[in-house]
Design a protein around this nucleic acid. Sequence first.
DNA 1: ACACGTGTTATGCG
DNA 2: TCGCATAACACGTG
Length: 277
Amino acid sequence: MPELPEVESARAVIERAALGRTIADVDDTDTWECRPHAPGEIRDALLGRTLLAAHRRGKSMWLTTSGRDGERDEHEEGPHLGLHLGMSGRILVTAAADGGDESVGGDYAGRHADRRKEEWFRFTLRFEDGGSLRLLDPRRLGRVRLDPDLSGVGPDAGEIGREEFRTRIGRGTAPLKARLLDQSAIAGVGNLLADETLWQAGLSPQHRVDDLDEEQLDELRRVLRRCIRAAIRQGGVHTGEVIPHRRADGHCPRCGAAMVRGEVGGRTTWWCPVDQT
DNA sequence: ACACGTGTTATGCG
DNA sequence: TCGCATAACACGTG
């Protein structure tokens, strides 16, 4: 999926193309994507409201909505609409009734990148102007929720401060990569971003977190920030330097050693056995 | 047919 | 209860 950089691109698309538009209809009939909401529940909560802002923490997004005209809550805010792209989700926003002008966010270079089937659209906001915001999600691991609970989501991986990073990452006995992937520790790092960051930092994914000293943790945080910024700017985590070399015949682009494949933190992991210690 | 996967979460174990 | 590991989830692709 979409890791932090792809979700940020989706958020930016919504911010640029969907804010200020009023919701005239909602398709929330996919009971898996919208669970535990009953069909119509999200629809009833959103009809007549306007999208006010698009926020993100890690891979979680939420859109704030306005009160409804003429109702008691007119000057208050409506519910938040939580969106999670899962492993294959993308956001599509169309500008007008004819659907001629379309923006895509959460784009990624996976196998589903350019494919699109009507039945993969799992959720739709239809606006008064005839345009729409849709969630395209072939694998159906994404989520749409009203007022999502983000209490278990850690601070954003691109925003976290030095002190908090030290304590959230450096404590315990977990392998370093497993900790980076733990969304309750820090939010936004996925499998590819973790491999790229650890390669850039010269650290083994199997390194026990409490073996790292403060200097190493600080450096790791700097590298992670740099990888996130670069991925956002260049269009996704797949633009990382070591990502193309995560393959059976891959070699470290720095030293030329054969890349090693293993499983760390429950995910397929590739690293350079020479450079990463 | 079979294995794999850029994510999350319920369950199990020490 | 905590920290960590694993299975399960849904479904397209090679």
